[in-house]
Simulated assay, not measured.
Amino acid sequence: MPTSINNSKINNITIIQNAIGASLACELSKIAGSSHPYLAPLAVIICLHATLGESILHGYLKIIGTFLGALATGFIAPYIGSNAWSIGLVVLLGMGMPRLLALSNEVGNHAAISALLILAFHNNGGYTIDRVRDTIIGVFIAILVKWVVGTIMGKVKG
């Protein structure tokens, strides 16, 4: 029974961290000039994990993957259209580049998702730049929120 209560408490804290982090990331993204401020909270939700170390690791992998996805697709999206073949191409590029660089499957997944979304939204005013910048903002906020709450919780316990 104590384990489920303990897990419930951790889950509640994680929910609160995500809510606070998503709000902060959205506002910071708007201040940074994003036309797509929902991307930063998305990065918070993806990168906020049980420990600070896990959040840092997953944030780092998300940034690398997002950058590679933007690199793979950002320059070609305006010229290849959006159809089944171009989707296959950008997913291949997004997942293939990290593979060639001997990076993790997680990086490949983030790269493919970014590549696909950049292909879909490239006509939507600066999406590629917003995608990369807002991912960095979201990862930074996720790590900051995790660190601040961990510091506070550590002081409360100690």
Results as ranks from 00 to 15, higher is better:
L101N: 08
H49V: 12
M95L: 15
V91Y: 04
I87F: 02
M153N: 12
T73L: 03
G81E: 03
A77H: 01
L119I: 06
R131V: 09
I87Y: 02
L93N: 00
S104G: 07
A111Q: 01
R133S: 08
P78Q: 05
I152C: 03
I5S: 02
F67D: 02
Y127P: 08
F140L: 13
H122E: 07
F121S: 09
L116R: 03
N105Q: 10
N12W: 13
A43L: 11
I15A: 13
L101R: 10
Y38E: 08
Y127S: 09
G65T: 04
A142Y: 02
G65C: 05
G126M: 11
S114W: 01
Y79P: 02
I16G: 01
I76P: 01
G88C: 00
G138N: 01
H110L: 06
G33N: 11
N123H: 12
L28H: 09
G81W: 05
Y127T: 06
N18D: 12
V148L: 10
H110A: 11
L89Y: 04
A77K: 00
H36Y: 05
K155Y: 14
V91P: 03
G96D: 10
K155N: 13
E106V: 14
V132T: 04
G81Y: 07
V90E: 00
P2V: 13
T128P: 03
I46Q: 01
V107G: 09
A77W: 00
L71F: 13
N18A: 13
N105A: 10
L116T: 10
A72I: 07
N18L: 12
R99I: 15
S82H: 08
G138L: 00
G138K: 00
L89M: 08
I137K: 06
A115V: 01
S34P: 05
N105F: 13
V44K: 01
P41N: 07
I136A: 05
N11A: 14
F121I: 02
L24F: 12
G125M: 15
S114N: 06
I141D: 01
G158T: 14
L52S: 08
A22M: 07
A84T: 10
G96W: 10
T151E: 14
G150S: 08
E27Y: 15
G69W: 08
I13H: 04
H49M: 13
V44W: 02
C26Y: 14
I31E: 05
N11T: 09
G126N: 11
A112T: 02
A111R: 01
T73C: 05
T128Q: 05
L101P: 07
K62G: 03
I137V: 14
F75I: 12
S4H: 15
L116Y: 02
W85P: 00
I45A: 04
G125F: 15
N124G: 15
L117R: 05
G126E: 10
G150A: 09
S34C: 03
L61M: 11
P37Y: 07
